[in-house]
Nucleic acid binder design. Structure first.
Length: 417
RNA sequence: CGGGACGUAGUGUAACGGUAGCAUAAAUGCUUUGGGAGCAUUCAGUCCGGGUUCAAAUCCCGGCGUCCCGACCA
């Protein structure tokens, strides 16, 4: 894409009410626009990153047999009443609305009930199970306090998956499969080394523990206790002597850290399937309960997390796997038409090789172009200018390793492959 | 939901109850051209509604909105 065509602009100052690093950098670089507190528009650059995160999540979910679908945002209250989750006293962050005739509706904040309801139609026999189904959709939660940019919003993008199993063993197998897939997602996003599966409260879902995936960060809302040797972590919310005993861990072996929740998976047992009357017939023709699990990853939150983790004072540094473009081509032709033509030819050649390029073809000064490139954070950068022409090479620099060297076109293409 | 701070051009900031100013962005022209350039000209603002006052950005009341701390977080 030619940067001259991009309608967003960078700015050197963030609005004063944006305090968090992620929203500040993302707004300054033109990735997101704030619509209201906790609600952000994904602009062209931001959407590319969001879609790249989705692609990775989708890929890993599909690999373990997840079937993608899309649920509705509008939801009938009846199914939520069956599980006692409609009442504001039970679930207090609902957005609710009404049909013209007065019928109450919910605006989707999570989808256990609708998934059970919809899939229940197709589950009759033991032959129909197990099932792993998921969606990527906007969720709406009436948070009393939205905060920290993309980390805690009222409308956000989430991947939620649900498993339906015949037995406890089958459920556990699926549960662990998903947990492994989650680790692969975080690895591909570059945060696998600093993300830990963490025992946490099951909330109103289950009496068992849930498993959170916590990425270490000082701005994290959660306090966790980590044992690196055993790769075990425990959320403060369940950090009691009783828990430690149950998990057979000594208090002294744990180190306190702050974490951002980047995923949460729950064993739901038979609570929702029972409440909504979804069962299956076994080999003997007897009705059996279905054991369920649910698995969430905050897609838009992850975009914010990556900025928090990798961003610098100068700007964002995207992991290659989600960068809006593979390479940022910056031309400093400064009115030299021959040089400009050469840069444009290079842009087109890279595209023809399937490389995604952001081409800074703007008629702007070098300083502005470099500052913008730093802010936008595409990991690979190529500069073509009078200087590089004199040397007979292109200038290649890498945001992650911060190396800058002269390279030939062929050498750079090799790196970008 | 409890507590605190705040609301002035697109953005960032000033202004004792008395002429709304500066920077930046944007527009035009000339110069400049490898790290957010210079000069000149121009455009653009007091969140909304009441009240006090000769006079309100400023004081008072209400609303709306934003941020921070806590609580909550399916």
């Amino acid at each position: 894409m030619k940067q001259s065509q991009l309608f967003t602009k960078t700015r050197s100052e963030a609005p004063k009410d944006e305090v968090s690093k992620n929203s500040e950098l993302l707004i300054r670089a033109g990735f997101i626009h704030k619509e209201m507190a906790g609600v952000y528009v994904f602009l062209p650059l931001g959407l590319r990153v969001l879609e790249n995160v989705k692609k990775i999540v989708r890929d890993e979910m599909n690999k373990i047999g997840g079937q993608e679908m899309m649920m509705t945002t509008l939801q009938p209250k009846e199914i939520w009443e069956k599980t006692n989750r409609w009442d504001d006293a039970v679930v207090d962050n609902w957005f609710k609305t009404k049909l013209k005739n007065g019928t109450e509706l919910g605006v989707g904040l999570t989808h256990e009930e609708p998934f059970v309801d919809a899939l229940g139609e197709y589950i009759q026999s033991y032959k129909d199970l197990p099932i792993l189904a998921y969606q990527i959709q906007n969720k709406f939660r009436n948070e009393l306090r939205a905060k920290s940019g993309l980390l805690r919003g009222r409308e956000f993008v989430m991947k939620d998956m649900y498993s339906f199993a015949r037995t406890e063993e089958e459920h556990n197998m699926l549960y662990e499969k998903v947990a492994d897939a989650y680790y692969r997602v975080y690895d591909r996003l570059g945060v696998g080394q600093i993300t830990r599966r963490t025992f946490a409260d099951g909330g109103i879902f289950t009496k068992k523990f849930s498993d959170e995936f916590q990425t270490f960060s000082d701005i994290g809302e959660d306090t966790i206790y980590v044992n690196e040797e055993k790769k075990v972590a425990i959320n403060k919310e369940i950090f009691t002597d009783e828990t430690l005993e149950k998990l057979n861990i000594k208090k002294d072996d744990l180190v306190e850290k702050k974490g951002i929740e980047v995923g949460n998976i729950f064993p739901l047992e038979t609570k929702y399937t029972e409440a909504l009357g979804v069962r299956y017939k076994d080999e003997k023709g007897e009705m059996q309960p279905i054991i369920m699990g649910c698995y969430g990853i905050g897609i838009s939150r992850l975009v914010g997390v990556l900025v928090e983790i990798f961003g610098t004072e100068k700007g964002i540094v995207w992991p290659e796997s989600v960068s809006p473009f593979k390479v940022h081509l910056v031309e400093l032709s400064q009115g030299d038409e021959v040089l400009k033509k050469k840069a444009t030819d290079l842009y087109e050649e890279l595209i023809s090789k399937g490389i995604e390029v952001l081409f800074d073809d703007r008629d702007a000064r070098a300083g502005e172009k470099f500052a913008d490139a730093d802010l936008i954070g595409i990991p690979h950068r190529i500069v073509i200018s009078k200087k590089t022409e004199e040397k007979g090479v292109l200038e290649y620099s890498n945001r992650i390793t911060t190396e800058t060297t002269g390279k030939t076109k062929e050498e750079i293409i090799e790196i970008l492959k």
